[in-house]
Every structure is written in structure tokens, then in C-alpha cells.
């Protein structure tokens, strides 16, 4: 698919969680390659597995089966110094800036701890200089005003900037931002996203943004890619303008048609796609065949509920999609049932 060596690659990744004797297959057969400096948005509804995917990319969770490759090599093979270096290369920014910063530490301490722990600085002078630098990078200026403050003295947006600065302490190559702006006010979200874009340019970072907000994903990843997830699988992935402008998978189409738009005329003329059911199936009873078939208006009995779709090409689209009728060269036809 790509000439360029990918930074991180997930190959046939499965992940399940057990609760009592019940097993929840949260991720199934995830294949995803993230290139250096790439912006990728993972979108989907709650429970689709986007956070779990993010945690696996960031190295915080191990796949139940499947491989996680870093620059083409299985991450389990690394030992010693190289292992520590690879572990540092991917960092996660959490959703909730109110609970991800220790309330009893100052911002200086919060940023200083990883710098010292990973020996990123030689002495106290350098430590101080580095903290100043990081705060300036995330536009928390003047740093002198911020460094001795506690998290509760900062606004939500400022706290999220501290979280991002903390992720940068260890010079990562990739940042996974899990709903990084969903708890921040609409009026300042754009500023944080622009800053992430800048950091990407300065440090050649790859960024994986996990979000449920399609309009935001469209804005952030316009030059990158979007992956749409449903019930633990990626159902569509491709360049953002292709996925948003010409959605292939019926689920993507349903999502896009359902999102209200900040424009009265446009939003009132939208026609939301009618699904056959509003219920999201439980992870313990994932439907056979294509997991979306019980809700899909284009469901073909005897086909969609039998075979399992895999990401592939179609005649009409640039992006990859996992939809049986489209993959077999057909079109989506609405059946009355």
C-alpha cells in the first residue's frame, strides 16, 4: 500500500477483555499502518474500540493476538536501551485534563518527573530550561507564571496544553490524542488542534486523533486519513476528502447523514439515512457476517449475514472499505424488508 516505511503498524490485532466468564472481543483483525508525520483520525461511536486501538498504538495495552511493529520490527523483540527508546516514542494524551494531571503536583513537577526519570536532562539548570521550552511550545506563556501553579489553577484548555507538553517531554515520534479536545470549550478547541499541527511540523510527529466528532476529524485530518470503526473493526479507511466527500460504507454514510451542521439551511435539508434498527449489538453477541448487517438498509440476505467483509477496494471509491456488495464490484441497493 505504501512505499514509505511505516512508523507503527498493527497486523491482525485482536484484543479481548474478560469480565467474569464472559469474553468481550473489543478489537478484531485490526490492520493499520501509520506513516511518519501522518495525521490519522479514528472515528466511531462509543464502544467501537477506538480507545483500545489508541492504547495499543501507544503501547499501553498488548494485543491478545497479532503483531505490533515499530519501524517494521515486532515490538516484543526489542530489549534493553532500544526497548526503552521505542516505548518512549509513542505517547498518549488523555481525554480528561481534569483527572490526568496529579492535583497535588505543580506544573513544573508534572513536566520535570518524566524528564528526570528518562534522563532527558543532565542537571537542574537544563531541567528548568527544558520545562520553560516545553511550556513555550504549547503556548503557555510566560512560563514563569505557569510553572509553579497547580492544575486546579488552570483552565481546561490550559490543562490540556500541559498534558500535551508532558507527552512531548520524552521526544516521541507519535502522539495518540484520545478525545483530546472533547472536554474543552468549542471556542478554544481550534487553537489546541492548530498547536498540535504546528508541533507535528516542528518535531516530525505522527498524530493519531481519536474523536467521535466527524466535523472535527474532517478539519484536523484534511491532509491525512480517517478510519471509521464499528464494533471492533475498521470498516472504512482512506484520505479524509475521499471518506467525507464520497463515503463508501453504509455505516459511514449513516453517520455523515446524521450529523447536524452549524448552518441552518444545510442542516435542515439533510436527509438522515434510515437504519433498519437503532440498537447497537452487544459485543458478546456480534452479528454473523458483516457486523452492521442487522442495521444496514442495503443488507443482502444470504450474503452480508454469511461472509465476513475485509477491507478492500471498490469500483467507485478511492478509499478502502469493508463492505461485501461493494468489494465484490456491486452497488448498494436498498431492499424493502
Amino acid at each position: 500500500m505504501t512505499e514509505q516505511q511505516s512508523l507503527i503498524e498493527l497486523r491482525h490485532v485482536y484484543r479481548s477483555f474478560e469480565k467474569g466468564r464472559v469474553e468481550f472481543p473489543v478489537l478484531q483483525d485490526i490492520n493499520l499502518a501509520i506513516r511518519p508525520k501522518e495525521v490519522l483520525c479514528l472515528v466511531g461511536e462509543s464502544g467501537c474500540g477506538k480507545t483500545t486501538t489508541g492504547k495499543i498504538i501507544a503501547g499501553l495495552l498488548k494485543p491478545s493476538s497479532g503483531e505490533l511493529l515499530y519501524e517494521g520490527e515486532n515490538i516484543e523483540k526489542f530489549r534493553g536501551k532500544r526497548r526503552a527508546q521505542v516505548r518512549r516514542a509513542t505517547q498518549l494524551v488523555h481525554q480528561d485534563p481534569f483527572s490526568s494531571l496529579n492535583p497535588s503536583h505543580t506544573i513544573g513537577q508534572i513536566l520535570g518527573y518524566p524528564l528526570k526519570r528518562h534522563r532527558m536532562v543532565k542537571d537542574r539548570v537544563e531541567l528548568r530550561r527544558r520545562i520553560w521550552e516545553l511550556l513555550t511550545l504549547v503556548d503557555l506563556t510566560p512560563p514563569g507564571d505557569i510553572v509553579n501553579k497547580y492544575p486546579h489553577q488552570l483552565s481546561g484548555g490550559q490543562r490540556q496544553r500541559v498534558s500535551i507538553a508532558r507527552a512531548l517531554t520524552v521526544d516521541p515520534n507519535l502522539i495518540v490524542a484520545d478525545e483530546a479536545v472533547s472536554m474543552v470549550d468549542v471556542s478554544i478547541r481550534i487553537g489546541i488542534l492548530k498547536m498540535l499541527h504546528n508541533l507535528r511540523d516542528v518535531f516530525d510527529l505522527s498524530i493519531v486523533l481519536i474523536t467521535h466528532d466527524l466535523a472535527l476529524a474532517k478539519y484536523f485530518a484534511w491532509e491525512g486519513r480517517i478510519a471509521v470503526m464499528y464494533l471492533g473493526r475498521i470498516v472504512e479507511i482512506g484520505r479524509t476528502p475521499d471518506v467525507i466527500g464520497n463515503p463508501a460504507h453504509p455505516y459511514t454514510q449513516a453517520l455523515l447523514s446524521a450529523v447536524p451542521e452549524a448552518d441552518p439551511s444545510i442542516t435542515r435539508s439533510k436527509e438522515p439515512m434510515k437504519l433498519r434498527s437503532d440498537e447497537i449489538p452487544s459485543l458478546t453477541a456480534i452479528p454473523s457476517g458483516c457486523a452492521f448487517h442487522p442495521r444496514c438498509p442495503f443488507h443482502q440476505p444470504g450474503f452480508c449475514d454469511v461472509a465476513s467483509p475485509r477491507l478492500g477496494v471498490t469500483k467507485q471509491h478511492q478509499q478502502n472499505v469493508a463492505c461485501l456488495p461493494l468489494n465484490s464490484g456491486g452497488e448498494l441497493v436498498q431492499h424493502d424488508s
Binding site: G157, I188, I190, G191, A215, L216, A262
Partner: peptide, 23 residues
């Protein structure tokens, strides 16, 4: 106006958006 300029819209392709400065 500032709120409108900060809200991304799906139907628009690439768009220029701005945060409101300060808090």
C-alpha cells in the same frame, strides 16, 4: 461571529477556523 468561526462544518472542504483568544 467568533463562535461561528470556530465551528467546523462537514459540508465545507478545507476551511479556515479560528479560536477565540483568552478565556
Amino acid at each position: 461571529l467568533s463562535l461561528l468561526n470556530a465551528a467546523p462544518r462537514l459540508s465545507v472542504g478545507e476551511e479556515e477556523l479560528h479560536s477565540i483568544k483568552g478565556s
